[in-house]
Design a protein around this nucleic acid. Structure first.
Lengths: 210, 210
DNA sequence: ACAGGTCTGTAACTTTTGTTACTGCCTAAC
DNA sequence: GTTAGGCAGTAACAAAAGTTACAGACCTGT
């Protein structure tokens, strides 16, 4: 465990802090598709990603979903952080994109480390910053892009996060992530295939235009 | 000036900090419509709002605009903060919604106060949090709401921020804020008027359904 | 082989949003 | 008063997105 922490966080955290993490943190494993955290959950600890990937989703009253962004190794979720510190319930759902290993750090340590470790303080600030810019990007795509562009972007992001151009995903699943209908996605995927940007197969999409 | 700082921040900052603010901060005044900060500007200080209101806009490469949220007395802009600390250029445009008074605090003090004043540290954290939730709300409206709902919401927000149900605004201006066309706004405004939710007059909209 | 389920493709249609064009109204400048 | 420019209303059309329906392909378990 210590080795994995070092791999993901060795470059940013002080040695003392690296040693403290496994003492108070709880190591967790999630399989692909598993819900790590759900909307309205009480959150009392925050995740530090060791490997794998997590997708963060938003949902409205009617159950419509929207993918906000992905988390990778070395990331944490500022929205969760915000929940922890503000003592509110989770505003988002976190789902393992694939096999994922992470450490849950309780809120008491989060706050204490903020005063004790400069590297931790910076990490928290940087998390807020990067999450703010991810949210800005999400807003940009929603406000300024059409569905076909959003779709292509989604596929590219997903290829990057899974380190593979061969995506195991159904049209319906994409439709959920982009909050639209399956038929729309099928239609646009066909169009993207015509344009030579992707290749369609059953349960699989190969991204070519990266 | 000290009195105004007290009115807006007296409840949250320590007395020492309140005294320090006017020593290093620069008092500024902006008239309605004035651009306070623009995209790609170098930001080396952050604003503390004393009174008035500021709207924060995002713009894409083609010049399309989108209103992100409003700032009121006692607020600061976490996106600006993020720019300051991260030493990047501004990602947003800030425009005075009406006559607005604010203090610009240089980045050196921002950081120094973070270590010295607990109340300041909390203020910064809370700013990040409230900006994150405003961004989430913006995403919700973009992802889950139709233009007519977005429009009504916009008018209600604007009425609240200006403390008046009588809004001096043109259809074109609304169209810019919501990133759509004037004709669409005119059409939907008529529909809202039919439904008894607003009243239309030249250069003025009266919001009735609050 | 067959039944049942999931996944994809596609047609036909509706609704929403965006675009272009033209009108009349109001107001400020001349 | 006349005129020019900004503003609002509306029609007609185009494009994008959402909906419903159905068919065929594939896969799994029996």
């Amino acid at each position: 465990m210590l080795q994995e922490i070092n791999e993901a966080y060795g470059f940013i955290f002080e040695e003392d802090l690296i040693r403290e993490i496994p003492e108070v943190g709880v190591l967790k494993l999630a399989g692909a598709g598993e819900i790590i955290m759900d909307i309205n959950d009480y959150i009392t600890s925050m995740p530090l990603l060791l490997n794998g990937a997590i997708k963060i989703l938003r949902e409205d009253e009617d159950g419509n979903e929207l993918l906000l962004y992905f988390l990778e190794r070395g990331d944490t979720c500022a929205l969760t952080l915000s929940c922890c510190l503000g003592q509110t319930r989770s505003e988002i759902r976190a789902v393992a994109e694939r096999e994922t290993k992470y450490i849950m750090v309780p809120v008491s340590e989060i706050e204490e480390w903020t005063t004790r470790y400069k590297s931790w303080r910076n990490f928290i600030f940087e998390s807020y910053q990067s999450r703010l810019s991810e949210m800005l990007e999400t807003i940009d795509t929603l406000a300024f892009m059409n569905m076909d562009q959003r779709l292509l972007r989604y596929l590219q992001d997903k290829a990057k996060i899974n380190q593979s151009e061969e995506l195991q995903v159904t049209h319906q699943q994409i439709a959920y992530d982009l909050n639209t209908s399956r038929v729309v996605i099928s239609r646009l995927l066909k169009k993207l295939e015509m344009e030579g940007k992707i290749l369609l197969q059953r349960n699989q999409i190969i991204v070519q235009d990266l």
